[in-house]
């Protein structure tokens, strides 16, 4: 089955989780990765994490009393790569716009 396009927020969460992180660290990492363009509120982030976990794209790496560290699963890595490839194709297909602008 073909993978559905990801939302921008989901894409950045998966991208940030190339290195295992806990929730707050994730928020900061997403800010860095997007150059401050994308800020994610805690409620929105928690909702996305719950959904990604339910879909098997991320897993809990380690867990103490309250804090959880999240990491990508193999499916998550594959989904991220697939989405990246899709986005690249979109950019390549849109390259003709540069010629139009000239």
């Amino acid at each position: 089955m073909e993978q559905q396009p990801m939302t921008e927020a989901m894409y950045y969460v998966l991208l940030a989780l190339l290195r295992p992180l806990h929730g707050y660290g994730l928020m900061q990492r997403i800010g860095q990765l997007s150059g401050g363009r994308l800020t994610m509120s805690p409620g929105t982030l928690y909702g996305i994490l719950s959904r990604l976990q339910r879909e098997g794209l991320i897993r809990l790496e380690e867990q103490d009393a309250r804090r959880k560290t999240y990491a990508l699963t193999e499916e998550g890595t594959a989904a991220l790569k697939a989405e990246y490839a899709r986005l690249c194709r979109l950019v390549e297909d849109g390259a003709m716009l540069k010629e139009v602008e000239k």
């Binding site: 927020a9 800020t39 994610m40 509120s41 805690p42 409620g43 929105t44 909702g47 996305i48």
Partner: peptide, 14 residues
């Protein structure tokens, strides 16, 4: 401090 939600669609699920 950031609002709890910046995406109403996400908050709607709650």
């Amino acid at each position: 401090d950031p609002e709890l939600y910046d995406d109403p669609r996400q908050q709607a699920d709650t």
